[in-house]
Each structure stands twice: as C-alpha cells, then as structure tokens.
C-alpha cells in the first residue's frame, strides 16, 4: 500500500472548539470547520506519521469504525482539503517547523 503523509500549512490559524476544529486560512480567506473525525486527522498531521497509522492509531482507537472504511474516508478527506492549500499531502515524509506546520 502506498504510504501517504500529511502536514498542516503554516498559513493558517487553528483552534479547537469542543470536538471540532476551526481553521482560518490566509491562503484564500476561508473559514473552515472540521467535524470530530476530521479534527482527529488534522491534529495528527505532523508530516511524519503515515496516514495509515493515523487512521489505525488515532481514528480507529477513538471512533467505532473499521480500518478499511476509516482509511478510505480519510484519503478522500485529505485529498479534498489539500485542494484548499491548508493541508499538504505527499508520498514522502514532510519537514515541518517546531510547531508542526509546513512553512
């Protein structure tokens, strides 16, 4: 299986509100709201942990879902979000700054 790595752009401001994540993007001046499962993936996007591990170790531990379904949904989600420039997706580990964001 192809490994996929995800990392958050530094051109955002994000805050967690309850189980959801609020993200203000400086890329296109959009305000995003992520649901709890999406927020779990977002928070784990350190550029070093493969998406498959994020799904099995974070999503599947926290939510009632199979690894297959969760991975399929997560791949769709990260691909969609990457189109907005606030999440980077790569088949190689992604270098991030000390705060865990891509400059």
């Amino acid at each position: 299986m192809e490994r996929k790595y995800i990392a958050r752009s530094a051109r955002i401001a994000a805050r967690q509100l309850g189980d959801e994540m609020m993200i203000m993007s400086a890329v296109d001046s959009k305000f995003f709201t992520l649901n709890p499962v999406a927020a779990t993936v977002w928070l784990a996007a350190d550029g070093q942990t493969p998406l498959g591990e994020i799904v099995t170790q974070r999503v599947c531990q926290e939510f009632e879902v199979s690894a297959e379904e969760a991975l399929r949904d997560a791949e769709t989600f990260v691909n969609d979000l990457s189109q907005h420039g606030i999440l980077l997706v790569s088949d190689q580990p992604i270098a991030t700054n000390a705060a865990g964001y891509v400059e």
Binding site: F31, L34, N35
Partner: peptide, 25 residues
C-alpha cells in the same frame, strides 16, 4: 474508554469577506 460513534471526516467552509459583509461596505 468507549469509542465514539463514527462519522465520515468532513469539513465545511465559508468565505470570510461574505461573513464580514465598515471598510468592506
């Protein structure tokens, strides 16, 4: 320790300037 109900990871967004709409006016 109980796992929470699963929903597909989803997001929604809105244009900030539309929400703001005063310099904008």
């Amino acid at each position: 320790g109980a796992r929470k109900p699963y929903t597909k990871p989803e997001y929604r967004y809105e244009e900030v300037f539309e929400t703001m709409a005063c310099n904008f006016n």
